[in-house]
Design a binder for these strands. Sequence first.
DNA 1: CCAAAAGTGTTCAGCTTACACCCATGA
DNA 2: TCATGGGTGTAAGCTGAACACTTTTGG
Lengths: 231, 231
Amino acid sequence: MVLYYSEYNKFLVAVDCIIFGFDGQELKLLLIKRNFPPAKGEWSLMGGFLKKDESLDNAAARVLFKLTGLQKVYLEQLYSYGEIDRDPGERVISAAYYALIKIDEYDEKLLKKYNAKWFLINDFPNLIFDHNIMVNKALKRLKRKAQSQPIGFELLPEKFTIPQLQKLYETIFQKEFDKRNFRKKILGFQVLQKFDEKEKKSSKKGAYLYRFDQDKYNRLIENGYSFEVNV
Amino acid sequence: MVLYYSEYNKFLVAVDCIIFGFDGQELKLLLIKRNFPPAKGEWSLMGGFLKKDESLDNAAARVLFKLTGLQKVYLEQLYSYGEIDRDPGERVISAAYYALIKIDEYDEKLLKKYNAKWFLINDFPNLIFDHNIMVNKALKRLKRKAQSQPIGFELLPEKFTIPQLQKLYETIFQKEFDKRNFRKKILGFQVLQKFDEKEKKSSKKGAYLYRFDQDKYNRLIENGYSFEVNV
DNA sequence: CCAAAAGTGTTCAGCTTACACCCATGA
DNA sequence: TCATGGGTGTAAGCTGAACACTTTTGG
């Protein structure tokens, strides 16, 4: 094999994952307590180094799987961080990804193995390196995306109620919505399929369950339809 | 120095720049004809390899300066590309950046030196590797950003007319606007400062010149003001 | 029977959109 | 004098925002 670029420097490349979950009340963040240097014992995002035989996307999926046991979850590249001294150990370029997971599906044993813990999005410890910056950017991205694309559903179970969905949007946008207007808006998109079943855990009356119809959404999108939640 | 991460693989890291300009009529893209292998003689984005002593942002600024002679221009990270075989020469991770430049300010000699040429945004040659994908993503980003932030001004000279601004938005969004509504909307933001001077190149009557007031915009932003162009 | 959450319609204000004519001037 | 692009106002429709009461049922 001919090496065209042999004169140039090579770098360590990492991926870091900002993992969001929703417990029905609050938006949460999954963090690990590092048990290796540098910054051993401090809180951090889950990360890992890129390997020769994998793409950045695959590396992020691998890291996410390693911690949660989950596959096929919403995972999107956020931003790449390349400041010279961002990692005090050695120079590392890091591609940050954020994931939206259904919080009741993660693997409890793996979380213990990696000293991982869920934190409230507005009450979590200081993180190592530039990880706080990454989390802030991920939150901004989540807000923007959730406004114009139906990604909120990634954080909810397959079947959910309108009040649950509203609570999710309220915690993402840190803002309360009028329930009549919210319901009108969301149902107006015509991408929710209603079940006859009710969810009765959070009220005596019970709330009807719905499901996001991805196929219908895809069809609507092709016709220039737009999903826009007013914040 | 202790090396914590010595067991991991290192990679070549590059930056590629999607450079946009506006000639008063059309949105344009600055491309170079590669005079080095692989893919010698083919059209490509301007790029370069990351050096030990510079951040990703600095590398992108260096590459942009090398080709255009311009500094302090609008330059934003777009996305990082890490597929294994994206560069047939050798494995390279590339961070793509996009730049908005004032088209009459670039350095003609440098463009000649690098075999660079401006192309219309909807009529440019096939590019090497994944550069077409990068350009598409940059275009989408530009559209989104221009809708919610006053970055269009980066593509215009310091003093510009309302019809020029409208033409710019029309070429970015590939859509015509009603001139009365456009003017109303833009002037309604109250961030344009009007001069008594007129620009008389494009009409006999002449059009008043304006300037984007960055300070005023910054002040408005602090108070929750939002710049939103309806498309 | 009562507390707690689910569910439901209407009105008003503001914004977006559509639309047509006069003005200034160089050639 | 005329062709060319610059500049201006108003009315209709739509969308977002505000707002209060009834229903259901477990405890």
